[in-house]
Design a protein around this nucleic acid. Sequence first.
DNA 1: AAAATGACCAAATGAGAATATTGGTCAGTC
DNA 2: GACTGACCAATATTCTCATTTGGTCATTTT
Lengths: 189, 189
Amino acid sequence: MDRRQEILEAASKSFSLFGYKATTMDQVAKIANVGKGTIYTFFENKEILFQEIVVKLILEMKLAAEQEIETSRPFQENAHNVLMKILQFREVHQLYAKLVEEEKELRTPTVQTMLIRIEKEIVSYISEKINIAVDKKELCPCDSELVAFLLFKSYIGLVADWGETHDSELSEERIAALFRDTIFKGLLP
Amino acid sequence: MDRRQEILEAASKSFSLFGYKATTMDQVAKIANVGKGTIYTFFENKEILFQEIVVKLILEMKLAAEQEIETSRPFQENAHNVLMKILQFREVHQLYAKLVEEEKELRTPTVQTMLIRIEKEIVSYISEKINIAVDKKELCPCDSELVAFLLFKSYIGLVADWGETHDSELSEERIAALFRDTIFKGLLP
DNA sequence: AAAATGACCAAATGAGAATATTGGTCAGTC
DNA sequence: GACTGACCAATATTCTCATTTGGTCATTTT
């Protein structure tokens, strides 16, 4: 069997279960049934190995997002579904959730860097979708990069931070209604 | 002279200069030219003393915000000015800036609690202003609490977090334009 | 000979004892 | 009776030393 692939799977499993810092190369070697040295013939170091796994995570997330899109539906609805899916991904996907947790508690710098990379990817993905919608005249022309950033940060804020200052969680309908009445209303032609 | 007042000023100075954790009661006593025990005749404990100072900070901030408001101008403009003022306050005001820093680096729980309190106060202040604007038919009726939260989180995100993922800072005009074209455009009657 | 291995090493980390500081008290001073 | 600062338990910090870790490379396996 492909040793490289086995190592990737072992590392992915360990990162998902214990996080970046708590995963040792010895452990990865053991799970992959491989000598530790072998890992280094395929991956320069721990961080590079991690990077490759994060790239896979990003692809997975994009795939999950893409599945939420139904071209016949209005942009607003697709955008809402995609953003909610991504935020749900953040909580449900083992690896992503673990990294968010590690960043909050441990502040591992490598994890921090990688999470920023993921966020950048998300924002640029949304930005592309906005550009497409603008071309199709579904939206007014706008600073798509900025609007994407605004949407992402707003959704994160409402879903993840609202609980910090309020007792009850926000319902998805209330969030959808807010965006319908504010940002999207402003963006429609 | 008023001993209570002297203690407050000394504590305020020390909190601003060194943060909450690094400020010792001995130090406050020394700065205030007062025996340590005296502090405890006016304030139950360190946290209560801190609270009182934070309440003052909130008042100061509300005052600064209020000065940005010119009733003859449209809501949008006032809101932008108030929010920018608050964010500037976050960076410029010695005590507020120190607390934000301490929260980021040290994670002092007391500071965390107090910052949440300040944020709550800001959001509820903006929420009130929105309600007034709705009454005056300057804005559509809306979920003012949510819209205030959205505005605050968005502004914070754009001013404070944009730099994390991008090299150049956002200009104030670009921010203003974004909100004009999105959220506010949606809120206007 | 090419690929895989695991004993090995310097550097980082962790445990935990020893020490110093801190928030808070209260017997005594003024 | 307002005020003080030596005092105390509890927490925090520093220091030490043993362990663990990422990464290498001489040796073994295929």
